[in-house]
Computed example of a mutant assay.
Amino acid sequence: MAHAIRIHANGGPEVFSWEAITVGAPGPGEALLHQRAVGLNYIDVYHRTGLYPLASFPAIIGMEGAGVVAAVGPGVTDVAVGDRVAYAGVPGAYAEERLIPADRLVKLPDDVSFETAASVMLQGMTARYLLRETYRVSASTVLLFHAAAGGVGLIACQWAKALGATMIGTVGSPGKMELAKAAGCTHVINYRTEDFVTRVRELTGGQGCGVVYDSIGKDTFPASLDCLKPKGLWVSFGNASGPVPPFDIGLLSAKGSLFATRPSVMAYTATRADLLANANELFGMIASGAIRPNISRTYPLRDVAEAHRDLESRSTTGSIVLTV
């Protein structure tokens, strides 16, 4: 009998319940996965609290994991029994075993552990599409990245450095400043002691940035727009401080004919070809040493409530992995 963390209503970390579940045989196009590690991401908090509504209850949340294929259903050709695989963007990860569409699984290189895969699939592919597709970052790019010492942020620091870009990062403590700087962030701002808009203007000679990556939400809006140069792009990809309030689209015109987008990893990996291109470039960056995954903490899956409390307190850096 397998176990999973389920929730029966939205709420705080106390809604998590460790329960026995029955996982059936895989149907057409499905694989049965024995999980070894699960990644913890802020989107899990949004699902738990109801900011991102769930389809029904009880529910098993969690968006990424890694493990071994235990069985496959009819018509599956992408993976085989015994394959080491990982995935991101498919709800239901907080479980020892799960069924999953086989075409959402990516085979792991031999030198990538389950824990590493679970720590980078969602965050690493997010960093990849943000810097390589949403805005094509190059050596001439000056960018601002909020939460530069977080899971996505530390990967973005390393990726931006590899691309030769000038990255300005914001963090909330001296310790996080050191982490972001060590990961390759060109300039780091402690938003608790400095006004980041003023500092960005100083660092860019009054020009502003070509792109701002904002996973904070309410607390950094609309100030993030004031960090952009004319025709710059504001990329809102998270709501750590709460959702961005509704705003008049005319604000984008008033602040310099700005562009705005709200992307998701699901859209950027919607086809199998897109998924493989994204994951394989990420694995290539890891293999080259350009990106070194940072797992700051691990927790047993059944202790996920504690992990959520630590994540929401903003006391964590890098990636958090739940072991199965």
Rank of each mutant, 00 (worst) to 15 (best):
K176C: 09
E14W: 04
M177L: 14
N294G: 00
V171G: 03
S264L: 10
R6V: 10
N239F: 12
I168W: 11
G50V: 02
F283T: 01
P28Q: 15
T193P: 01
L322Q: 06
V90S: 09
Q35P: 03
G27A: 15
A260M: 13
C185E: 11
I295W: 04
L54N: 10
V81Q: 15
G124P: 04
M285R: 06
T317V: 08
A254V: 09
S264E: 12
G73P: 00
V197H: 06
H34F: 08
A2N: 14
A127V: 10
A117L: 02
R36N: 09
D226L: 14
K255H: 12
A148H: 06
A254I: 13
A31I: 00
G11T: 09
G208D: 12
P174S: 12
G150R: 11
A118K: 05
L33I: 13
M121H: 07
G82N: 05
F221Y: 15
A127E: 08
C227N: 05
I61V: 11
F259L: 13
Y299Q: 06
G250Q: 13
Y129F: 15
N294Q: 11
S241Q: 11
I189N: 05
G256K: 02
V152D: 06
L228K: 03
Y42H: 14
A277F: 00
E281K: 00
A240C: 13
G238Y: 02
W234P: 00
P109Y: 02
F259T: 09
E281W: 04
T204N: 12
V212G: 02
V68I: 15
A95I: 04
S224G: 10
G206H: 07
M266K: 13
R136K: 14
A277G: 10
V212C: 11
P28G: 13
H34C: 08
H47W: 06
K218C: 00
I61M: 12
V38F: 03
P74M: 12
L32T: 11
P263T: 01
T49G: 03
M177Q: 15
G153S: 10
N278T: 15
A240N: 14
D195P: 01
D310R: 12
F114S: 03
L203I: 02
S313V: 07
N294S: 08
T141D: 14
T271V: 09
L225P: 03
A31Q: 08
L282P: 02
L322W: 04
V304T: 13
S236N: 15
E19Y: 06
S138P: 00
L258T: 07
I5T: 02
G238R: 04
H34Q: 15
A95F: 08
L154M: 10
I60L: 09
E19L: 04
